[in-house]
Design a binder for these strands. Structure first.
Length: 260
DNA sequence: ATGCCCGAGAACCTCGGA
């Protein structure tokens, strides 16, 4: 079973990149963030003709998350439980594994936060705290759980191209890393790091300046597996190929494969 | 330099992103 997460920064602009990537990689699940489109415009057919079912929740201009799957998802939940929010940042569902077990897949677009002293950071903290509560009950109900998405947090300095430049800044602050550690202490594991311990491995590069060319990136797109899923994990990687295309997203897919 | 680039929406600029 292979899954991936990818912040596409406008699905309207990136639908061809996504279609080509599905064809090339044939994942069982592909979780997308930053659709930036209302549900009525979601390109259901572009993916169904490639053999993928879609569940999605979008809005005009901002946010939006979707899960594409080789088999239809069951028990789909849209919106973070117990959190009133017009922003579309959470979608989850059950995916039937070939073994007969069920995987609970949760896809999130964590708020950016902008700056530690901004109102948006207050929102990021509140949102993240509700995510932790939601994952606590999800993990209680489903031993096979994978939480993926754009977390807008680097787990450590190893995930930052220039830790000195980013020290204490949004995405790299101690308070955000502590939030992430507390979430993971519920029983979630950074799957990429199980297989890759070196630095200079990023999932996002700034459009501005040297950006991708100079490998000035952050690893903020994560696959967090429950312990039973981590045991079944056989590989995890970052596919930089889409970041090299013309008119790319500023993020690139992060992949995990499981022997299940 | 709280910029650099990009996308969206409304209009040729502002907002948000990370």
């Amino acid at each position: 079973m292979k899954l991936a997460t990818w912040n596409v920064n406008s699905l309207r602009v990136r639908v061809e990149h996504v279609s080509d990537w599905l064809t090339a990689h044939s994942p069982d699940l592909l979780c997308l963030q930053e659709l930036k489109m209302p549900d009525a415009e979601f390109p259901v057919e572009a993916f169904s003709k490639l053999g993928y079912h879609s569940v999605y929740t979008g809005q005009k201009t901002y946010n939006g998350v979707a899960i594409l799957s080789r088999k239809p998802l069951e028990n789909v939940v849209i919106d973070l439980p117990n959190f009133e929010d017009p922003m579309r940042r959470y979608i989850a569902g059950d995916f039937a594994l070939d073994s007969g077990d069920t995987l609970r897949i949760v896809n999130v677009y964590v708020p950016n936060g902008q700056a530690l002293d901004s109102e948006k950071f207050v929102y990021k903290r509140a949102w993240f705290s509700k995510l932790q509560a939601a994952m606590r009950s999800t993990l209680r109900e489903h031993s096979h759980t994978v939480l993926v998405g754009d977390f807008n947090i680097t787990p450590s300095d190893l995930d930052v191209h220039d830790p000195k430049r980013w020290a204490g800044k949004i995405h790299c602050s101690d308070i955000e890393r502590l939030m992430l550690q507390k979430l993971m202490a519920e029983g979630l594991y950074d799957t990429y790091r199980q297989f890759n311990q070196s630095g200079d491995a990023f999932s996002w590069w700034d459009y501005r300046g040297a950006g991708y060319r100079a490998n000035e990136g952050l690893r903020i797109d994560l696959v967090l597996s429950s312990s039973s899923m981590l045991k079944a994990a056989v590989s995890s990687s970052i596919d930089e190929a889409p970041r090299k295309l013309e008119r790319p997203s500023d993020h690139t897919p992060v992949i995990a494969e499981y022997d299940l």
